[in-house]
Design a protein around this nucleic acid. Structure first.
Lengths: 334, 334
DNA sequence: TGCGATTGTCGAAGCGCTTCAACAACGAGA
DNA sequence: TCTCGTTGTTGAAGCGCTTCGACAATCGCA
């Protein structure tokens, strides 16, 4: 293994000089700097991560508790994680994957100084891990917006605004009764923060416009079609649908397209929306951007910068009108 | 921060004694051992991971390159990762999540001694990372079965056997022309190892029974229904379907159920199969078990044990016959 | 021309742990 | 009684890096 001593020797300087060249924490003459850098390249030197972290008291690793639970939108979770990992690498951080939903993992990772900071996904409205986070020395960021998260930094998509936006869009399209086909029952039962906020926004906007609205828990499979059928039987005057459910989206949208006058808006990643041509409109769920934003927040905390306690990514209506990607591109060109 | 010196002082022993109590590498009297353990508990001592790894020259961390690509079966990937993480914890290892598909990440993680070993998922038939792995000092295990992986340890599900099994099942059910609705085009184009092996097994078994068979690339959305329709138009005598495509499964199965005499078998995780009642049968894709097996293999390598170069988890027909989980339970009870 | 400030480099002291070699203390066999 | 193994414990030497304080060498300014 190549050590800093080998580099120092090859460049004809001391160990500390090599260290300062790498960190830039002291001024080094151009000449010396170049000699050291050549030696580093020639020897393919890579600093030993543990040695570095022992001496510098920081690991450049962020611990991530990602959900591996049922009912969650796996596609979205993967995208968020991808965003987190990519953004972390930009800032020279790595991601340690912690088994989820146990506070012990948080204690272990920080107690053993394996990580500089923590990132938590799939946060519930009253998450028991929140209390744990307060005890820990390491800074943390939540992807989600639980109740009672004062003092904690939270980053999330603005689900409440998305609910409003969907409702207002449907109402603007002329619908006089609407329904939300939302998350599966287990997600609701866990009081997952985003599901509750989405519902709140949707119902509030409908109420403001005096439009009757109902909310339905929706299984992720083609059984969701049964839910839709039941909704239509119970409320035959429902003509506007808002779908937020990865697994059910394609089924429900396909079924909805067969019913005269029924129109559907969805909340989902843009690439998913593109595969469902029968949607009237969609609200983009910027999953990767969410992961990146969360990472940026934790990096800022680590740098000692002041960050807003809560950052919500805005909900924007994608003007897809069901067009597939290539078609949209053509439209844009004309 | 509590250090080993604090524990030693509290227990009235030397630092090395504390270390030997924790590692068990030397005999320690029962009395001393208990005193040390009490001190550890009382002080909530957690050894500093970096200090330990610097001194012991091993990190107890495994690097994982997981795919965050399109077309992959996200659900299955998540389950595999969950299996990997859980099994790793059993053996006191942690998982470092590496950005995927770049060989540089492998060099970085091992060169900087951040990991003891590497785990690679989503391996292609001719994966460029394989050459890199050979250069590295760290042991590695592939989840997949690429060509030219001699010398490398591989763990995977036996997709070829699954292909055979599905074909034989359909033939046994009396079908005289069958079709495989497989992975999306991008997965095929990447020459993903599992897709090719599944096809090979399926076609081989059909050929052995002189049963005509066709293979179709299948988009993951409800567009897959179009593919099915096209297949039925082109080959009206197709009555047996084998589906291996997470996103398309529910759509295709639902559509197939509307065609008289058409029967479908699927390859997917058991919990997914349960949500698709129109399936005749399914072959379980033991995703979590696959992750666990891969981790066990890498742990064995790290322990210097000899492990088989290739381990394939067997394909087994789940006798679901389309029954949903509760119904099956009832049947079992009677 | 002299003197303080700046610039560039270095030696050495850790960071918290593992592990080797050494060594008391003790019991057993001759 | 003496010697030789065991058994249990310890001090100290690293592991590879960062960073502090020190110190020449050079510079700017009076």
């Amino acid at each position: 293994m190549v050590t800093i001593a080998d580099v120092a020797h090859a460049a004809g300087v001391s160990i500390s000089t090599v260290s300062y060249v790498m960190s830039g924490k002291r001024t080094i003459s151009q000449d010396t700097k170049e000699r050291v850098e050549r030696a580093i390249d020639a020897l393919e030197y890579r600093p030993h991560a543990s040695a570095r972290s022992l001496a510098s008291r920081s690991t450049n690793v962020i611990g991530l508790q990602a959900p591996l639970r049922s009912g969650v939108d796996v596609h979205v979770v993967m995208e968020i994680v991808a965003g987190i990992v990519r953004e972390a690498r930009v800032h020279h951080y790595d991601i340690l994957l912690l088994t989820s939903d146990d506070a012990e993992g948080l204690h272990r990772a920080t107690g053993a100084s394996m990580v500089d900071a923590l990132l938590l996904m799939d946060v519930e409205s009253d998450d028991p891990r929140i209390a744990t986070l307060r005890e820990l020395a390491a800074p943390s960021v939540l992807v989600g917006l639980p109740r009672g998260a004062e003092e904690l930094t939270c980053v999330d998509f603005d689900f409440e605004a998305a609910g409003r936006l969907a409702a207002e869009r449907l109402i603007a399209l002329g619908h006089r009764r609407v329904a939300l086909l939302g998350s599966p029952r287990e997600v609701i039962d866990r009081h997952t923060s985003y599901a509750e906020r989405l519902t709140r926004g949707f119902l509030a906007a409908c109420a403001e416009h005096d439009i009757p609205a109902t909310v339905h828990q929706c299984p992720t499979t083609h059984e969701s079609v049964r839910v839709l059928n039941a909704v239509l039987v119970e409320h035959p005057d429902v003509t506007g649908l808002f779908i937020h459910n990865e697994g059910a989206l394609a089924h429900v949208a396909a079924r909805a397209a067969t019913v005269d006058g029924l129109e559907a808006v969805a909340l989902c990643p843009a690439d998913i929306a593109r595969t469902v041509p029968t949607l009237i409109d969609s609200i983009d769920l910027p999953a990767e951007g969410l992961g990146r934003a969360a990472t940026q927040a934790i990096i800022a905390l680590l740098a000692g910068e002041s960050t807003p306690k809560v950052r919500l990514l805005p909900a924007v209506l994608a003007s897809s009108r069901g067009a597939s990607a290539p078609e949209r591109a053509e439209v844009a060109v004309r």
